[in-house]
Design a protein around this nucleic acid. Structure first.
Lengths: 366, 366
DNA sequence: GAAAATCTGATGTACGTAAATCAAAAATCT
DNA sequence: AGATTTTTGATTTACGTACATCAGATTTTC
């Protein structure tokens, strides 16, 4: 049987009230007494029953998610996952609000972060623009004891508590590795399409990609990086121009968003030698392009996983609890047309009507 | 504010006791009254506070994990993950026991399942040998209202509640797709190394691999499937013989375990034209081989994820609760040497000593 | 229409923790 | 030593649910 506060009290030879004071860091306990209690806790291996504690506290976790607005498919998918989490709010004791700000706009993001701080939530998750102003704003939150998790794109040199996203350098390296091997001895230059160098994830991917291409596949010339601002129309135009200027192109690595534009440009091109295309994020567009063969591989981060992870981490940090590191590591999914996951759809057991068949005695006491 | 049992009572115009009788399926409620209560529940959108309910019940979930014995690295890693889950038991209210049975031995597995049934646990997770006897044993458990989750390898045509593992047909297809593209126009036959056709995961991988090879890369001749029984020594011998018999071999797909033997045989071979090797499961051995270049790609399933998922699902099923489908989908990880995850190690916040810096007032009431 | 059976209400205890109050004890200061 | 401050103990209520008991009300049965 798991030890309780009563057991601590008995073991330490103090009253329940004192144990409570120590556990909840209330004032009015001498250091010696506090240490006696802490030793007892250590000795009998007490762990707070978080469920009971939350019940007693009536605790809820107000969380704020800040992400870019606009019609970026990935970001909208992310938002959808957050909304799915909102539906689970009553069960998870969260109160999630979503704030959107223009993409790549550090000023707007700082304003949103400061507004978030004003309502002192239990935690903030943010898709970061990597700039010193933003770092400062995040650090202001941290100083106010509000845990912050960066989501999807990290922040350089800030005190954020955690990054819920993939290792983007590794993603870029992986893209290069696949690109090089898929191309084999096929000649021709490789183009890189990015969104903006203002966000860390894009910079990291580029860094990893360039490193492996130069080291392992130096025969392939790399064209100057194209910045599409994650805007499909702009991307379509720029890629169209590039294809016209360099018809012998052998590969394209799209490390940002706006892949709709890329796919449109590729379709428009029509015939010509095959181009190996590697893109990021599995959206309806990239999925279709993968199935139809315009794209050869998609590197993906699971938005649902990231959102759930961010929530778990924020709650844990707010309570000063441990985090299962391995569980919070977001993996780089590599999708070829052969391992596409089935379309979404969650197994829904009705929570109430069904379980009846299991006998009530199933649970044990003690 | 979330509705409680009191709110149901008020809304339905009955007493708390009656609400309790309906909620917990106790006898002594007329159908009309029961319906009145159920409508009220529906109407005000009540959801049982599982934490409070578990607290009141003092519920724990006795779970049994059944997996193969032997020195299969993946399975031992799986066992380690189960032990990690046992450490979290007090927090998760689980009581996990591990049972090991000889690999590929349906009879032993059936015996273990029946023994498990005898102690009527809250749920059973099993790495299944795919045979009718095992299906029958699992179905006996299900008839006894004990939820069953198959782990890693599924069971054909049984009533198991859930499969916590990857889509192995897709994994085989993916392996073929990578193999074909990595080989490019390099000629030479491809060898397939399996463990045993008695387990579903191996059969599925083979099926997927063969399908894509035949359809997309018909130029590559496939050598007869080698069955290594997941035994490194046997694998080393068989692969050694194969390499000697077919020195022009271009690729090897190892879809089972015993990769230590494969790697040893490859090292022993030494020089010769490069062989594209794709294997399953990231273990210390395959990881090293990936880094050193003996293996080109590793398809992996995250054992930790599978174990945690199995536990979540079993608990949910035992309570008749809903399952977040997307969260329980186990992904096929593809590792090249460029995207290997860092070595393990969980961020450890001490649960108690640290969090102090966050103010106690952080939590809200209401 | 009365007795028997069935249903419903009222009430209390429990789970493990949080939080508050007030009295009592111990330490500190003068 | 006495007054003052600080520390500790004892006790109570609450969170939302489970479960048990017993009395009272309603239905059913003959």
């Amino acid at each position: 049987m798991r030890p309780t506060v009563h057991d601590i009290a008995a073991a330490a030879g103090v009253s329940l009230a004192t144990v409570d004071r120590v556990l909840n860091r209330r004032p009015g306990v001498r250091i010696v007494t506090r240490e006696k209690v802490e030793q007892a806790i250590e000795r009998i291996g007490y762990v707070r029953d978080v469920a009971a504690a939350n019940l007693a506290k009536g605790r809820v976790y107000p969380l704020i998610f800040i992400l870019p607005s606009g019609d970026n498919s990935f970001m909208r998918g992310l938002e959808e996952e957050i909304r799915a989490a909102i539906l689970r709010s009553p069960v998870e004791r969260t109160e999630i609000s979503i704030v959107t700000v223009p993409a790549f706009d550090a000023g707007a993001l700082v304003a949103a972060l400061d507004e978030a701080a004003a309502v002192s939530p239990a935690g903030v998750a943010v898709v970061a623009v990597d700039s010193p102003d933003v770092v400062a704003a995040v650090d202001r939150l941290r100083v106010g004891h509000i845990p912050v998790v960066t989501l999807v794109s990290d922040l350089t040199g800030s005190a954020r508590d955690h990054f819920a996203g993939i290792d983007n350098i590794a993603a870029g390296r992986t893209a290069a590795s696949l690109m090089g091997r898929f191309l084999g001895h096929r000649p021709g230059p490789v183009a890189v399409l990015a969104g903006s160098m203002l966000v860390r994830d894009h910079r990291d991917r580029l860094e990893g990609f360039l490193a492996v291409m130069e080291e392992m596949f130096p025969d392939h010339r790399l064209l100057p990086v194209i910045e599409g601002q994650d805007d499909p129309a702009r991307v379509a135009r720029l890629i169209g121009e590039t294809l016209a200027a360099s018809p012998e192109i052998a590969g394209i690595y799209s490390l940002g968003a706006g892949n709709r534009g890329l796919i449109a440009a590729l379709k428009k091109r029509g015939k010509g030698p095959p181009i190996c295309v590697i893109a990021h994020e599995l959206t309806p567009h990239t999925r279709a392009a993968l199935e139809e063969g315009q794209i050869d591989a998609v590197l993906n981060q699971d938005a649902g996983h990231e959102v759930r992870s961010a929530i778990r981490v924020l709650k844990a940090k707010a309570d000063g609890m441990a985090v299962v590191g391995a569980q919070e590591r977001i993996r780089i999914d590599i999708f070829l047309k052969d391992n596409l996951p089935f379309e979404q759809g969650s197994e829904t057991n009705l929570p109430f009507e069904q379980g009846s068949r299991n006998e009530p005695e199933q649970g044990r006491k003690d």
